[in-house]
Design a protein around this nucleic acid. Sequence first.
DNA 1: CCAAAAGTGTTTTAATTACACCCATGA
DNA 2: TCATGGGTGTAATTAAAACACTTTTGG
Lengths: 247, 247
Amino acid sequence: MSEYNPSLSVDCVIFGLDLNEQALKILVYERDIFHNEYPGNKNLKFPGSLVAEDKNLDDSAYQVLNELTGLKNVCLKQFHAFGNPDRIKNGEEKEWVERHYGVNIHRVVTVAYYALIRIDKLNPDQSMIKDKLRWINVDNANNLAFDHSHILEHAREALQMDMILQNVIAFELLPEKFTFMQLQSMYELILGTNLDKRNFRKKMSKADYIVPLGEKQNGVAHKPAMLYAFDRKKFEKSRETISTFFV
Amino acid sequence: MSEYNPSLSVDCVIFGLDLNEQALKILVYERDIFHNEYPGNKNLKFPGSLVAEDKNLDDSAYQVLNELTGLKNVCLKQFHAFGNPDRIKNGEEKEWVERHYGVNIHRVVTVAYYALIRIDKLNPDQSMIKDKLRWINVDNANNLAFDHSHILEHAREALQMDMILQNVIAFELLPEKFTFMQLQSMYELILGTNLDKRNFRKKMSKADYIVPLGEKQNGVAHKPAMLYAFDRKKFEKSRETISTFFV
DNA sequence: CCAAAAGTGTTTTAATTACACCCATGA
DNA sequence: TCATGGGTGTAATTAAAACACTTTTGG
């Protein structure tokens, strides 16, 4: 492992979908040192790291994600760099970083990524997740550490834009087998809108990359829903047709 | 002026529209030292700078733009950070940077911005523009210095995406008074498509922020075209209606 | 009068919106 | 049998695509 560059970091805004609670969530790291000084969310930050001198940004972000969650093959996308000189406040925030990494810092530019993972893919017994990582609702995520609330705002916008332009396979957020209603919830939670059920189905059922499995839910106290799966190959193919340019 | 952070830079991809040549162009800085070693485009780079330790990224980029071109109130947007450890090659490229800034560098992450300006707004007599800055066609811009060709690819995509989502007022690229045909050329050159003249006019004439001036071209050897202007207030207002979500 | 770009409408097709009732299941 | 979410269709409106000729000007 080579040295950290004290001016460069990456941060990962890790999104997950909680379909029971109907909430878009983020995975945050709980700093265990400042229970007194930083009440509430001020102790929560996005998983991140200073960047090793010989490592590129994407790999650094990927490593953060991988080390904390154990997940591989995760959708990860850079969306913005944040470099306000006082984004890490002098005093306790700066001290925490210096203690944590064992280097002196002055100003740190962070390159922010968002990731999409399935909440159920995380093994809840993994020590890191038990001890230091928590899923919180994006709507309750004000007042995070550093400028991380600001970063979150950008992340949500980026995710929305990518979803609209279909650059993002938000299917990463859904279980392998999902219902149309869950698919719709995902769109609604990310875009922050309500969509008409019938029109949504009409539109989405045209997409050949959403394939019906001929299987139904069971154990639910209502009419069981048909299950669908996402076909990545067909999705990639459909993206080649650059589609509806000049909106 | 405080010290430069040797790990951080900003670069500006400055787009302009040459309506005579029907070309999208970029403003590049010609390094005058390496005429022998770097034939062709390898001597051309985007205007950029290391970032001063106490300055934020947006301001740094703005300063680069302002100092080189004298322009203010320019549309400037961050689109990506580039941080491959060997994006500045050891040897001549690294030496050039070190000589240019008078600091030793190791790895430099650059935060890239694109800007939109009107080519005719640049005073061609300004010394910097005469001596060191040149407009070149984006399509002839392979093989630029460092990883700047790679950066250009990202910049074009970002501009396209922003144009499609109407986040970008590409009107920055057009003269104050423009014809519908020029407007269409802008869309075509940025999106890299051909658009149907009648359908384009039909669609765009619905936009209230494109206002007819009741004036016509003169001195042209064909039927003179009606001139239009861009109304920024109306544009901002129309953007509030978040419009056609869920494309 | 010729070249060059401006300007103009209609038809067909596809996409979007709005909207309300019955169905299958477990409790 | 009740509560819960699943699933379905039509009509009206609006947007998109395809397509060819006449007009005005300067040279």
